[in-house]
């Protein structure tokens, strides 16, 4: 199947994005210029028409041709994706497919890895966050992150939540700080369990509670987006269910991007799903559609458990 832009040498970027838009609308593939083919794989999987850069009106994030090199090894190749406001985007794919790498681009946590280089453009509310002028601390206040392993600070429950507001100077006085901590713990569904022991160490909580504490800590900074990197993989099923319920509630106020190994979880919590494979975005679309009617062979194989 040939696509409109195929084979035509184009310099005009406006033209290219117009092509992409049309391709996306028509469900057609615009073959991305794969400057960095994933090692060991020829090129067959781009043959069928994919529409990775499905565009969204009023997107919170729009990523165009985002690539990541780890010490010259590709971690992510030309990913173009929009992230919709107040929705949950699930990012799935086999280990090493670049889903965490992608997530860490969105709050520039890749900066902390020596030798990592990010190219392309990532617009957050229309502002390029990869630029030198971007203050990373301010970005990370706007885009919070919850990690795989619950990692409370060796401080009290209260201080864990108060840490972010303190560094960003969000509270006017201690009463205000109390309010922020209380509200954050409530939103994270932890308040009733910890309200009588706010001065106990955060590590005294159970794993699931610790993870909700980490979510409360993230919420306390009043972010717009919350990134979650396999937030339930270290938790038991009951704690996982609680976190999933929480994600569903948080969706009303925040945009959430969740990386997960569990396809059931992706199906349960997300409205859109993106499938990554060997550093490339293969397919993105409504969760229902992706799981019931994947357009790509690779997505289908992964979802039906043929690998991964």
């Amino acid at each position: 199947m040939s696509t409109p832009g195929d084979g035509i040498p184009v310099q005009d970027t406006a033209f290219v994005s117009e092509q992409k838009r049309r391709a996306a609308e028509g469900g057609l593939n615009l073959k991305p210029s794969s400057r960095m083919p994933a090692p060991g794989s020829p090129e067959p999987r781009r043959a069928v028409g994919a529409a990775p850069a499905a565009r969204i009106e009023d997107a919170v994030f729009s990523c165009r041709d985002v690539s990541v090199l780890y010490a010259d090894k590709p971690g992510l190749s030309n990913v173009s994706i929009d992230i919709a406001r107040q929705q949950v985007l699930a990012v799935i794919g086999p280990s090493g497919c670049g889903k965490s790498t992608f997530l860490r681009c969105l709050n520039r946590m890749n900066d902390t890895i020596a030798g990592a280089r990010v190219t392309g453009s990532i617009l957050l509310e229309g502002r390029d966050i990869l630029g030198k002028e971007q203050d990373v601390a301010q970005l990370r206040a706007q885009v919070g992150m919850v990690f795989q392993k619950p990692n409370p600070f060796p401080k009290s429950i209260f201080e864990n939540v108060a840490y972010g507001p303190r560094i960003h100077g969000l509270a006017r006085g201690s009463a205000d700080l109390d309010d922020i901590v209380c509200a954050s713990l409530r939103r994270a569904g932890l308040w009733n369990e910890v309200k009588d022991r706010l001065s106990r160490p955060g590590t005294s909580l159970s794993g699931g509670q610790q993870q909700r504490l980490c979510i409360a800590r993230t919420i306390a900074v009043q972010p717009e987006v919350i990134l979650m990197d396999e937030p339930c993989s270290a938790l038991d099923p009951v704690a996982t269910a609680r976190i999933e319920d929480l994600i569903d509630e948080l969706r009303a106020s925040y945009t959430i991007v969740i990386v997960t190994h569990s396809m059931q979880q992706a199906a349960r919590v997300s409205q859109r799903t993106a499938y990554f494979h060997l550093g490339e975005l293969i397919e993105v679309g409504e969760t229902n559609r992706v799981f019931t009617n994947p357009r790509q062979k690779l997505t289908e194989d992964y979802i039906s458990g043929r690998f991964g």
Binding site: M145, N151, Y163, G164, C214, V221
Partner: peptide, 21 residues
């Protein structure tokens, strides 16, 4: 490292992470 990452991801500069965490 997870503890340091958590602080960084909250928007703390390295020196803040070092002294506070």
């Amino acid at each position: 490292q997870g503890m340091k990452d958590a602080s960084t991801a909250l928007g703390a500069y390295p020196w803040r992470t070092i002294t506070s965490i």
